[in-house]
Design a protein around this nucleic acid. Structure first.
Lengths: 212, 212
DNA sequence: CGCTTTCGCTACGAGCCGTAGCGTAACTGT
DNA sequence: ACAGTTACGCTACGGCTCGTAGCGAAAGCG
């Protein structure tokens, strides 16, 4: 999923290769442990046992609990794609529902929040989360915006720096609202909510682009 | 701050009363430990030492780390108030900046996120967070909306259930965007960002209230 | 067949957890 | 003043997880 640790160069030359099956089994076991035990209950020893792997093998590949969980949770976002439903509103609704479906899973909830909490004191961890989780989500905003500009649903960008700020704003508004509703308000992100949200967001963006 | 544990009735009748100074010292020590050690590094033994209190005293008042940190962090939100700056936009900007200032503090970041992660598997903890942290923020949205309706900046509510849904939507959008920008994007919630955000939000709400 | 790296296993000191037990301190009612 | 009740500080404890070290065996490569 991500460049993790590597002995030397891109293809480690000699010696016994690392088991790819073990890698996959560990990530599966990590997600299962997150579901059953939560973040605080998850121990590397437990994960190792579930995966049918020695505890030392875990420590050879990951620096600790934080990094392991980031990789395990990041894989959940692989399925995230930008649909093409014809209109910007429909595209947004589709992505938001996909995103919400992932966030509804218990391993994503406990794992993501906990690792985000740890990242506030660990710059390397924050960077790891950014590249393997956040940026992949952000790209969807970028693509959706470009597609809407081609359709004429959004005005083309003028200044590249203001465009970047707008994308950041949209991203924080979309992802923030979904995360907050799911994890703080603890209420479902269902069709009616998504429609209301999309309506407010798009009207706001259209109005903000036009002169006041 | 919150009804916590109580021996019998409202006024514990007899025996030595609990030290209020100890209570305050413990919460201060908890926040300090969050800043210096983060969530994972915080231990109840350490907090007890900092507060000049025995470890057993901690366990007599709080069930564990989760509950203690909730109370310690909840106190940060006591200062949150709704200013009256004349316009809805200015009121929102004021509240958002206050909220962002609290979230910028390291004890709020690591503490809140971690305890939120734990709350996904603990209904009682989630409820505790809701009453002592979330609802207090939500009330500001309610008050601000009512004030704006008096001013004529927002249409009066028609159906009470749709009004409640709208308030929930606004709350998730505001709090979600601020939290996401602060903790996930790890970028500052400063004046220009708040103005852009408020502009998009208000135009969206105005447009959504009007017929399409 | 040597060389290298990974793997599973065992064992270890260290640290924290949450509780129990004790004697003492503080406050209340008679 | 005195018993009754509750909170406090302190010490000690078994149990658990941590992260590492050391070993022999397995799995590739030249």
């Amino acid at each position: 999923m991500v460049a993790r640790m590597q002995s030397r160069t891109s293809a480690s030359r000699t010696g016994r290769p690392r088991s790819a099956e073990a890698d996959a089994a560990i990530l599966v076991a990590t997600r299962a442990a997150l579901v059953e035990l939560g973040w605080s209950g998850l121990t590397l020893g437990n994960v190792a046992t579930r995966a049918g792997v020695a505890k030392t093998t875990l420590y050879r590949r990951w620096a600790g609990k934080n990094e392991l969980v980031v990789d395990a949770v990041a894989a959940l976002f692989d399925e995230l794609e930008l649909p093409d439903r014809g209109t910007l509103a429909a595209d947004i609704e589709g992505v938001v529902l996909q995103f919400a479906a992932i966030l509804a899973r218990p391993e994503a909830q406990s794992g993501l929040m906990a690792v985000l909490a740890e990242s506030t004191r660990d710059a390397a961890l924050r960077e790891r989360i950014r590249t393997s989780v956040v940026d992949r989500q952000k790209r969807l905003v970028l693509e959706g915006r470009a597609r809407a500009q081609v359709r004429g649903e959004l005005p083309p960008e003028t200044d590249p720096s203001t465009a970047a700020r707008t994308v950041d704003l949209i991203f924080d508004m979309v992802a923030g609202a979904v995360v907050h509703r799911t994890l703080v308000s603890a209420e479902p992100v269902d069709q009616p909510w998504v429609q209301s949200f999309t309506r407010v967001l798009l009207l706001g963006l259209a109005g903000a682009a036009a002169p006041s």
